[in-house]
Structure formats: C-alpha cells, structure tokens
Design a binder for these strands. Structure first.
Lengths: 204, 204
DNA sequence: ACTACAATATGACGGTTGACATAGCCAGCG
DNA sequence: CGCTGGCTATGTCAACCGTCATATTGTAGT
C-alpha cells in the first residue's frame, strides 16, 4: 500500500512550488510544512528532489485536467473554458493571491542541483526532462480544450490555435494576478475569451 | 559618470534571470558571467541582491516598452502587436529557447533572502515591493497597447481588456515556448491575436 | 517468538549562498 | 609630491542546501 506521507509530500511540494517557485522550495521545508518525516524522503523519492518535483507537477497537472476533461465532455467547450478559469480564480482567491501555477514555475525557472557543476553536458539532458514534463501537461490541457472545440464544429487547426491561446493567456494571467494581488486581470481576460469563443462557435 | 561595470551587471542579471529564474541566479554567477569584479557588488548595489533584481527587471521592462511605445505611436496598434510578438520571438530563437521573460520570473517566484526567517511579517512587505515593480511593468506595457487601441477608435474598457489579453497571452506563450523548445505556440497565438485585433478594429 | 523488511529518525558532509570587512589599487587634483 | 575617494580584490562568516549513512522503530509473515 502506498504510504500516506508520500502523497502529503507531493501535495505539499506542489503547493510550495506554486507559491515560491521551484528553486525556492527546499525539501526540508516541504517536510516541515507537511509534518512528514525528513528521513523518509530518500525512501519515497530515491531520485531526490528532481523526482519530487516531477511527481508534484504531474499531480498538479492531473488536478486540473481531471475536472477539465470531465466538464468539457459533459457540457461542452464553453463550460470547459469557464471551469478552467474558475479553477484558477479559486486557487488565487483562497491563497490571497500567493499561489500560482507550479507547472508555469517549472517552465520559467531552471532547476539546478548544487553538486558537480561540471560542464553543461549532463545538466542539459536532465533539465530537458523537467521541461518536457511541463510541456506535456500544457499539451494535455490544450488537447482537452482542442477536442471540445472540434466537437463544436471547428476545424482542427483553428481548434488547436484557440486552445493554445486559452491555455497560454490563462497561465500568463494567473501570474499577473499574483503580481497585482487582484483578480481583475483574470476577469478581463475571461471576458474576452468568452466573447471570442462564443462568436467563433455560434457564428460558424 | 556611471560606471560601465554596473550596467553590465544589471544586463547580465536580467539575462540570467530570464534563463534560470530569480532564485537560481546568484550574485557570484552574475559577476562570473559578466566578467565584472565581485568586490564591486556591494558598492554598486548597496541594497544587495534585491536591488540588483529591481534594477534588472526595470532594465528589461524598458527594453521592451521602448520599441513598443515607439512603434505603436508611429504605426498604430497592429504594428505594436507585431513588434511585441516579434521581440519575444527573437529573444527565444537567439537563445535556443533558453531565455524567457525575467519579469514573469519575478511574478511567478518568491525571492527569499537567507537570513532572518523570523515570521512572515517583515518578508511580506519587502516581497510586495518586487511584485509591485513587476506589476508596474506589466501595466506599462498594457497601457501602451491600450492607448493605441483607443486611438483606433475602441472604447476604453474594451481597449484595456484586449491589452490585458495580449500581454498575458504573450507572456504565457513565451513560457510555453521555452518548455516546448519551439516557437510554434507563439506562432499560433500570434495568428489568433492578429485575427482578433484586426476584426475588432476594422469591424468597428 | 522471531525474522525480515519497510518506514522513520538523526546526524554528518561538502558545497554554495548573500553579506560584510579589510586591504590594495589607481586615477584626479591640490 | 601626497592625498583622497571611487573602485576593486580577497577572505570570512553564519546559514542553508541536497545527499548519504547510520541507527531505531514499526509491522507483517512464518
């Protein structure tokens, strides 16, 4: 049976990463923050901090794609857009605009491990892995929205472009809301995105 | 006369921050990367690392808002949009998709200085300052685009919303491009944004 | 009851960080 | 010439990091 502490560590890491970023989140603080034993860290995550980060962003990604997939297939593209936005808005408001998106943090930062700076040879490949993971999660969200838009009758290429626009603009807006300590950017972007999608779908 | 090494430090810090994020950029690496003397750091930046970060993002912000302001007032909103996008596209391509936006990095991360963990009392206020600065730069870009859109005859509220959408989506897209090691997301978003603005301006 | 193994606790290690202090350099100018 | 003040060089400091090694505990299987 998979331990409970492992899950708490992953969730705690995702939370801290969304608030402070990847490099500002230390493993010691994760265990401090979650009340989990420090000694278990190398047991549950033999891959070290890198593995914790991977698990955390996969966890965070699934937490979004789950409801998103459910609502889009159930009630269409428009409901999916609203769910996507509402989900982030709630996260922002519930944390007083301290938490953002941990996947975006991975996409913006570069995780560097202390030992053996060496050359950039080994670092590059390992670095790729984290970015690939983040890119995969973004692609996942896009694919869900894109499929829903195609379902509404849009051409494949148009649906893909619009899905990219939605994911990118919401991610950027969440960061802006964090900086502004306000949900206003999200409301403005939400307004425009709804207008755009509505006109594109209905005016077909 | 303001020293040359100071400017090199600021530019180097902005560059490193755009590649690795705020917390992964150490002052020692800035001086290593720019060939500037380590001892001068506390002379040029008595405020320590925080001051370096501030100067770096102000510098990076001006590097965008300069050309942006010039082109929008010269050739209109559409040219401004294209300039904004092209500017980021060039940055991405010239660095093999390693550099993103340092202001976004500040907006996503939380800069934490090692000493005096204390409570969150003192940290909060200081943290605000960096985020306020980042928010101000975003607002600067928005204001330029928004003014250009109003010049094209749009209502003030609509112009503001669209400007927010443009800035947010481009910022998010730049991060996605970094993760994907590809300019494709930017091209897709660019396509949709041009379509949107064109229809909104012409169909007035 | 006793073993075997997963999980937890605790400490140590080598390394880096930001900040600061002290000392040396080197114009420019009286 | 000598001084002076802006830079630069170098070292030290405490704190923290990620990782590993070594107990110690908990617990299920026989």
């Amino acid at each position: 049976m998979t331990s409970n502490t492992r899950a708490k560590m992953v969730a705690g890491a995702a939370d801290l990463m969304s608030r402070r970023g990847v490099n500002a989140t230390s493993m010691r603080e994760v265990v401090r923050h979650t009340g989990t034993p420090r000694g278990s860290i190398s047991h549950h995550f033999p891959g070290g901090k890198r593995q914790l980060i991977e698990d955390a962003i996969v966890f965070a990604g699934a937490q979004v794609s789950g409801p998103l997939r459910h609502l889009t297939t159930e009630r269409g593209a428009m409901a999916g857009l609203r769910a996507f936005i509402t989900l982030w808005k709630r996260t922002l408001e519930q944390t007083n605009y301290q938490a953002g998106c941990p996947i975006l943090a991975v996409a913006v930062e570069e995780y560097v491990s202390d030992p053996s700076d060496k050359d950039t040879g080994g670092g590059q490949a390992v670095q790729r892995h984290l970015l690939d993971l983040a890119q995969g999660i973004f692609a996942d969200w896009q694919q869900i929205l894109s499929a829903a838009l195609k379902q509404e009758g849009l051409a494949a290429s148009r649906a893909r472009r619009l899905a990219t626009l939605v994911v990118a603009s919401v991610e950027g807006t969440v960061a802006m809301c964090r900086a502004a300590r306000s949900a206003q950017p999200l409301e403005e972007v939400s307004h425009e995105l709804e207008l755009l999608l509505k006109s594109v779908i209905e005016g077909r």
